[in-house]
Measured scan of single mutants.
Amino acid sequence: MPVRRGHVAPQNTFLDTIIRKFEGQSRKFIIANARVENCAVIYCNDGFCELCGYSRAEVMQRPCTCDFLHGPRTQRRAAAQIAQALLGAEERKVEIAFYRKDGSCFLCLVDVVPVKNEDGAVIMFILNFEVVMEKDMVGSPAHDTNHRGPPTSWLAPGRAKTFRLKLPALLALTARESSVRSGGAGGAGAPGAVVVDVDLTPAAPSSESLALDEVTAMDNHVAGLGPAEERRALVGPGSPPRSAPGQLPSPRAHSLNPDASGSSCSLARTRSRESCASVRRASSADDIEAMRAGVLPPPPRHASTGAMHPLRSGLLNSTSDSDLVRYRTISKIPQITLNFVDLKGDPFLASPTSDREIIAPKIKERTHNVTEKVTQVLSLGADVLPEYKLQAPRIHRWTILHYSPFKAVWDWLILLLVIYTAVFTPYSAAFLLKETEEGPPATECGYACQPLAVVDLIVDIMFIVDILINFRTTYVNANEEVVSHPGRIAVHYFKGWFLIDMVAAIPFDLLI
């Protein structure tokens, strides 16, 4: 008679799926529990143990900040960024110097990925580790590398530091407007667009060049630039800015003055950032001319202004700041037409079709709590990747769950009947059967004279019903998954307890 339990259901295979997918890609990662103190490590794979030199037993239950890997060259700011990422709910990448158990130093890129439950609360953290440099290539500990984003994938490793954006290309926007319009339909740009040429040739750093990471940081200074100062900065030398009595002219307006920039070969870094931020506020060169004239017309309804409409929906549905990093990277690809469009465009503009998908598509409701890094690593669709929660398995109709209350009560009843059979069957065979043979035949009273025979008949009927119930009862397979398919249940029961239950259900007393 089957006594099969499996009270692990309803099970959740999400954690096993993450481990299996990460292991298949030869990654070095740990999984931490966000619900406990210090976000203790609950799993670390073999790749991480080989990377740091510690065994799994030495890593388990330690804080996922990996303070046991810190050393003299470990930056405090990087460690603080990892700790801050564990307090938030967004994906974050941090470069930090770690030390192995043998004392060797290596520069590592740590990717902190939160995993949320159905309520939107962070319950786990996945920390992925990628070695960037070994100890002989690690720089000085005073050099802070965590304020910069990861290198873009479309640049060669040897040319990542030679990417320079020439400031004269930004200063000569109005001069290039006529050349853009003359391109017409034969050019790649839309009317009114501004073409910015980027020099990728390796050259020595000069005062006129600005690194790509500095251009990325310009967006942080746009908020500090007032509207009046932006307007004066875009007017140009024809209309000098008016300053109040006793007030000095704005240095932001002076930063885009061609006369002032041409007199000296070098520009201050602050002026460069502010000038680029001011130019980015204009949607095209037409807006710059309109600002000089004193009238700013409404933005025209053409394809170039609607190019950012799908980007707005993608940004609203993005799951991490990696989408913004990807957008900034692609927006700086050289030799393309940049349409400086305000994100607050007309909502009635139709979304044009684009061959290049900048932001990841909208994630469906079932995966809105899973970050983009987890979705990318697992390579699963929205119909396959579940949320991290207890999910009731989908069972067929008329199927009994093996952990249901009805099955528990039924098993206790069958257990009592088995005990009765084990006690009274030998007793009936030894004593009652002998008395029946010696006594007179009682054929007239039937079952009324033999109450134990009636009980034995009921017990046999219950055993037959138990066999039928076992054909529709779920079970737990070797992978700790609840199986509810009727065919698989029948095959599993035939290979197991079916023969024993059938022999126990045969009414031998009635056959004798």
Results as ranks from 00 to 15, higher is better:
Arg4Ala: 13
Phe14Pro: 09
Thr17Ala: 12
Thr17Gln: 08
Thr17Arg: 10
Ile18Gly: 01
Ile19Phe: 03
Arg20Thr: 13
Lys21Trp: 08
Lys21Glu: 13
Gln25Glu: 14
Gln25Pro: 11
Ile30Leu: 11
Ile31Glu: 01
Ala32Thr: 03
Asn33Ser: 10
Ala34Asn: 12
Val36Tyr: 15
Asn38Gln: 10
Cys39Trp: 15
Val41Trp: 01
Val41Gly: 01
Cys44Pro: 01
Cys44Ile: 01
Asp46Asn: 15
Gly47Lys: 08
Gly47Leu: 08
Phe48Trp: 13
Phe48Cys: 01
Glu50Pro: 01
Glu50Ala: 12
Cys52Met: 09
Gly53Cys: 01
Tyr54Lys: 01
Arg56His: 01
Pro63Arg: 08
Thr65Leu: 05
Cys66Pro: 01
Phe68Thr: 01
Phe68His: 01
His70Glu: 01
Gly71Cys: 01
Arg73Ala: 12
Thr74Val: 01
Gln75Asn: 15
Ala78Cys: 12
Ala79Thr: 07
Gln81Gly: 11
Ala83Lys: 08
Ala83Val: 07
Ala83Tyr: 06
Gln84Asn: 06
Ala85Pro: 01
Leu86Gly: 01
Leu87Gln: 15
Glu91Pro: 11
Arg92Ile: 12
Lys93Gln: 13
Tyr99Ser: 03
Tyr99Gly: 01
Arg100Lys: 15
Arg100Thr: 05
Lys101Tyr: 01
Phe106Glu: 01
Leu107Asn: 15
Cys108His: 01
Val110Glu: 01
Asp111Val: 07
Asp111Lys: 08
Val112Ser: 01
Pro114Cys: 01
Val115Gly: 02
Asn117Lys: 13
Asn117Glu: 07
Gly120Met: 15
Phe125Gly: 11
Ile126Asn: 01
Ile126Thr: 09
Leu127Gln: 01
Val132Arg: 15
Met133Pro: 15
Met133Arg: 12
Lys135Cys: 09
Gly139Thr: 15
Gly139His: 15
Ser140Leu: 10
Pro141Leu: 15
Ala142Phe: 15
Asp144Ile: 12
Arg148His: 05
Arg148Trp: 07
Pro151Gln: 13
Thr152Pro: 11
Trp154Ser: 14
Ala156Glu: 15
Gly158Cys: 05
Gly158Ser: 15
Gly158Arg: 07
Arg159Gln: 09
Arg159Ser: 08
Ala160Arg: 09
Lys161Asp: 11
Thr162Asn: 15
Arg164Ala: 14
Lys166Asn: 05
Pro168Gln: 10
Ala169Cys: 05
Ala172Trp: 04
Leu173Pro: 15
Ala175Pro: 14
Arg176Pro: 15
Glu177Lys: 09
Val180Leu: 12
Arg181Met: 06
Ser182Gly: 13
Ser182Tyr: 15
Gly183Phe: 06
Gly192His: 05
Gly192Thr: 08
Gly192Ile: 01
Val198Ala: 05
Asp199Gly: 06
Thr201Glu: 09
Pro202Trp: 01
Ala211Trp: 01
Ala211Asp: 15
Ala211Glu: 08
Leu212Arg: 07
Leu212Ala: 12
Thr216Trp: 05
Ala217Cys: 15
Ala217Trp: 08
Met218Ile: 07
Asp219Val: 06
Asp219Asn: 15
His221Phe: 15
Ala223Lys: 14
Ala228Ser: 06
Ala228Leu: 14
Glu230Val: 05
Arg242Ile: 09
Gly246Arg: 14
Arg252Glu: 15
Asn257Val: 14
Asp259Val: 11
Gly262Met: 14
Ser264Gln: 07
Ser266Gly: 11
Arg269Gly: 12
Thr270Arg: 14
Ser272Gly: 05
Arg273Met: 15
Cys276Trp: 05
Ala277Tyr: 12
Ala277Pro: 07
Ser278Cys: 12
Val279Gln: 09
Arg281Gly: 13
Ser284Pro: 09
Ala285Pro: 14
Asp286Leu: 09
Asp287Ser: 09
Ala290Cys: 13
Ala293Asn: 15
Ala293Trp: 13
Gly294Phe: 07
Pro299His: 07
Pro299Thr: 12
Ala303Leu: 12
Ala307Pro: 12
His309Lys: 05
Ser313Gly: 12
Ser313Pro: 11
Ser320Tyr: 11
Ser320Gly: 13
Asp321Asn: 09
Asp321Leu: 05
Asp323Ile: 03
Leu324Glu: 13
Arg326Gln: 09
Arg326Cys: 05
Thr329Tyr: 08
Thr329Leu: 08
Ser331Ala: 07
Ile333Lys: 11
Ile333Ala: 09
Gln335Ala: 12
Gln335Pro: 14
Thr337Val: 07
Thr337Ile: 05
Thr337Ala: 15
Asp342Met: 01
Leu343Trp: 12
Gly345Asn: 01
Pro347Ser: 05
Phe348Gly: 13
Phe348Asn: 04
Leu349Thr: 12
Pro352Met: 03
Pro352Val: 12
Thr353Glu: 08
Ser354Gln: 14
Arg356Ile: 15
Glu357Cys: 14
Glu357Met: 14
Glu357Leu: 05
Ile359Thr: 04
Ile363Ser: 08
Ile363Val: 11
Arg366Tyr: 08
Thr367Glu: 09
Thr367Ser: 11
Thr367Arg: 12
Asn369Ser: 14
Val370Tyr: 11
Glu372Ala: 10
Glu372Gly: 12
Val374Glu: 01
Val374Tyr: 13
Thr375Asn: 04
Leu380Cys: 07
Pro386Tyr: 03
